[in-house]
Structures are given as C-alpha cells and as structure tokens.
Nucleic acid binder design. Structure first.
Lengths: 115, 115
DNA sequence: GTAAAGTCTGACGTCAGCGTCAATGTCAAG
DNA sequence: CTTGACATTGACGCTGACGTCAGACTTTAC
C-alpha cells in the first residue's frame, strides 16, 4: 500500500509516517517510481508506534522496543530495554502520584473556600 | 535576596527564574539598581513551581494554580481549576496504566526469550 | 582604582514530533 | 494531452522550558 492509504487506515499523517521512517521506526520498500510501498502489517506497526509515542516514549526508545513487541521471534536481543521501560513507568507513576497530591490540596482548598 | 542566591537555594537557574517571572509565576520587587529582589517565601514558591512543572503542568496552569496552593486566603476564586487538574491527573494515570501494559508485554517477551 | 563577579535586557539556539509550504515528478481520468 | 490527485525531497515554522551568548551596568574584592 502507498502512504496515502496507510495514512487513512492509521490516522497518522503522511508527514508523520515519513518522520517515523526517518527515525528508523519504519522501513517500507520502494516501488519503481520511488513511492513508499508498505506491507499490510505496517498498519499494526504504526498503531503500536503511535500508542507508544502517545504514552510518552521517545522515538529512539520506540525504535528499540518495536522489534520486541512486534516480531514473533526477534533475532536480536533486547538488553536493558526492560529496565528503561520500568524506569519510565516509575517516572510516570510518581508523577501521577504527585498530581494526586496537588489535586487533593486544591480540592481541600476549594472546599474550605466554598463560596 | 537577589537572583543568584535564590538560584542557589532552589536549584533553578537564573534564566529559569527570569522565565518564570516572564510567564507571570513570580513578581519580585526591584531594588534601586534594577536588580530583582525576592522575598524569603520565594524559595517555597519556586519549589512549588518546579514541582508542578516537573509533573507536567503547563506554566499557564501553574500560574492559575499557584495562588490556590500558596495563598492562605486567596482573594480570587479558582473556578474550573479542579477540573483541569483532574483531567491532567487522569491523563497521566491512563498513560501510566498503558505503560504498565507495555512493560508487562515486554516482560513476558523477555521471559520467553530468556537466553 | 581596577579587575572579577553578579545582574540586567534582548535575542537566538535546542529538542521532539510533527505541520506546512515549495518545487518537482508520477499516475489515472477525461 | 491536459488536468488533478497523490507522491517525492528539502526546508522552514511551531510550542515549551529553558541554555547560551552579547553588550552594558553595578557591585564587590583587593
């Protein structure tokens, strides 16, 4: 499939898809005319990419993670990735916790000053 | 206190402190020579600011939230702030949850491919 | 009195994940 | 054959929270 179709089927803009490729997240074939030619699994790949990016993973990490989540049997190992993911998760967790603290203090503040 | 001292006592760079002022988060007095003159409570204010920014609040929201968390009795109300905070908290929460999902899948992947 | 250190106000640089032209090439339809 | 839709690369714009000069002034130390 060409970039327009993949764009429609994933919701990612063509610009985003080219950007993903530039970042090494996708490696589509090229047709004779130079057009990008994506395989059918590209849809799932892009969806995974977008999900990971939305969560907050930097594209470099997504690039490393991707073969581990998609490939049934990855040829290369994924050393240290688990630790990186866990670190990021802990970071997000602590932020969530602190956000709750802030929300609680604001909440009680609003209660006290109930007009 | 001058900007250098506040910088040392908070860990925020002078540049950051000026930026906070520019964003309306701080309003230090000015000495006769034009130097910024921060009161003693500025330390706590800056710490709060940094904490909120680190959590992910945009500076505009911090500006609105700040008088509610710091001021014992704020003159102005904080309408809608609670909702914004809650929305952000939910967002961070869901991201944390999805991160855990990713981490779990990666974790099981690594188990299967234990070298 | 002079040099070093601190402060001031611009203003441009940075990184990420794209948006948005711009100029050009290619393919399907009439 | 020409129009129009879709493709290509290249490059600049954008937002946020600052970093990093540059040039000028003030204060501090000796």
């Amino acid at each position: 499939m060409k970039i327009g179709e993949l764009s429609e089927r994933t919701g990612a803009s063509p610009r985003a898809l080219r950007y993903y490729e530039q970042q090494g997240l996708l490696s589509p074939d090229r047709s004779a005319n130079g057009y990008r030619d994506y395989g059918p699994n590209a849809v799932a790949m892009v969806e995974t990419i977008r999900a990971l990016l939305e969560i907050g993973l930097p594209s470099a990490l997504v690039r490393d993670v991707l073969p581990c989540t998609v490939g049934e049997r990855a040829e290369s190992a994924c050393p240290g990735l688990l630790a990186q993911i866990a670190a990021l998760r802990d970071d997000v967790r602590s932020k969530a916790a602190r956000l709750e603290t802030v929300e609680a203090s604001l909440s009680s503040y609003l209660k006290d000053n109930a007009a």
